[in-house]
Nucleic acid binder design. Structure first.
Length: 441
DNA sequence: AGTTCCCGCCAAGAC
DNA sequence: GTCTTGGCGGGAACT
């Protein structure tokens, strides 16, 4: 089906390009039908004709196509113009996509007009770092030291977000952090943040991170966009800015949804949808004054999700396995030992998966068993707790430089191992890459 | 009628 | 000055 669409979509592409696009379109069999890569002709609304369908131009679909096009080992550098041309959309839309993808560690900006493809392997670290930042911000601790190379929130330019908040006192300021601004990264560039940074505070990338932080730190895994906007913006803002914020959250949610980081569910008692974080589904909630949108079981209707249920890939067996790793061991283990444990853990889990105990995440390999709904709920809370234990086992506390260095070393080694591991696992590659790694967040 | 969100204008900033 | 980036809100598609 996609072939004709692709041909139409890339009029200026070489046959090789088209073939490639077709291959990629066919390489994502587990995407829901609505997310199958579909390349439609772009040229903007001016061509809004008989066949115009808003769904065919959604950011979510565009994101799926973008990922389908570039989620490969041999892709290293992505040109925005090239992406726009191949996807048949305006460059403006590509900015929206890459900003969100960069926020979750899938891409990293390399230069003007150019991004590096990191892939889904960058997500765990990005989310972990986001969570750590958010927790520190929440607990009033000093921000993390100037960032080391986390893919996700790597800020190759400026100091941490220490400036006094320009406009406020709201939750958004508490959560806010700098966003990428590579152009500042040059000798003589001003290091202080002035009014111009106000613009960045509202960037889609930063908003994405803050949105994700809500899920990562607030014990909330379902929230409506209105609520998210209130939390991010603070109460008492003008109706207009709230509307604008919600619009942007829709954009972000659609992209994250297409990546299966979140899932849109319909609240039973209102028309407004809520979004559920797939990384911690089933987690106990209700805290921090957030109105939880999760209705009683059976009262929500999932609008999507044809495969997988979690970003975290937790199950009982793995949790037991994980719990064998001493929680506090991180301070005494060498980096090598930690890495070894980490690898062993993942390998065991993979083995279990083949025996039926493994639960894949949203990037569920086609040949693998999906999570059984019943099993998925039973003991889920325990899973989450064990998952947290595991995360704690590998999470550095940055209490001193030596530990920080040790962790950096471990991270590098781990990344390198993962990249080898990922290459060896065609199944995983075929499905966006990384169901297993998520657990280490 | 309310919600969702695509679209492109245009300003900020880089060069 | 041109080009890149991306905030923003109008308004059309969708429910």
């Amino acid at each position: 089906m996609a072939t004709a669409a692709v041909m139409a979509a890339v009029p200026s592409s070489s046959p090789a390009d088209v073939a490639e696009a077709v291959v990629m379109a066919e390489a994502v069999p587990s995407l829901p039908q609505c997310q199958q890569p579909v390349f439609v002709e772009g040229r903007g609304a001016k061509l809004r004709d008989h066949a115009y369908s808003r769904k065919q131009k959604s950011l979510g679909l565009l994101c799926s196509n973008f990922v389908a096009l570039y989620n490969r080992d041999d892709v290293e550098s992505i040109g925005l113009d090239d992406a726009a041309r191949r996807l048949g959309v305006e460059r403006r839309r590509i900015y929206d996509i890459v900003n969100v993808l960069e926020s979750v560690g899938i891409l990293v900006r390399k230069a003007k007009n150019r991004y590096s493809w990191i892939g889904f392997g960058g997500v765990p670290m990005a989310l972990r770092e986001l969570k750590e930042r958010a927790l520190r911000e929440k607990s009033g601790l000093a921000p993390l030291p100037v960032e080391e190379p986390s893919v996700a929130i790597m800020s190759d330019d400026e100091d941490e977000d220490k400036m006094g908040d320009a406009d406020g006192d709201t939750e958004s300021e508490k959560l806010s952090q700098p966003v990428d601004n590579p152009s500042d990264n040059k000798p003589g560039a001003p290091r202080c943040r002035l009014r111009s940074d106000h613009r960045k505070e509202k960037s889609l990338g930063l908003l994405t991170q803050n949105f994700v932080k809500l899920f990562l730190t607030m014990e909330v895994d379902t929230i409506s966009l209105d609520e998210a906007a209130k939390l991010l913006l603070g109460e008492g803002h003008a109706e207009n800015s709230m509307r604008t914020k919600v619009r942007r959250l829709y954009d972000i949610a659609n992209v994250l949804s297409s990546l299966n980081f979140i899932d849109k569910i319909q609240q039973a008692d209102s028309r407004k949808p809520a979004f559920r974080w797939l990384g911690s589904a089933g987690k106990p909630k209700a805290e921090n004054g957030v109105t939880i949108a999760v209705p009683p079981p059976g009262k929500t209707i999932s609008n999507k999700r044809a495969f997988g249920t979690e970003l975290t890939n937790i199950d009982i067996n793995r949790s037991r396995l994980d719990s064998t790793i001493p929680k506090k061991a991180k301070l005494t283990q060498s980096g090598g030992e930690i890495l070894k444990n980490c690898k062993l853990s993942v390998q065991k889990q993979l083995g279990q998966g083949s025996k039926g105990g493994f639960v894949y995440g949203p990037f569920h390999p086609a040949g693998a068993r999906k999570q059984e709904p019943d099993n998925g709920n039973k003991g889920h809370t325990d899973n989450v707790q064990n998952w947290e234990s595991l995360a704690a086992s590998f999470r550095p506390q940055y209490q001193n430089q030596a530990l920080g260095d040790l962790f950096a070393h471990y991270v590098e080694a781990w990344k390198s191992w993962y990249s080898e591991f990922a290459q060896g696992s065609s199944m995983m590659q075929q499905h966006f890459g990384m169901p297993v790694i998520n657990q280490f967040l």
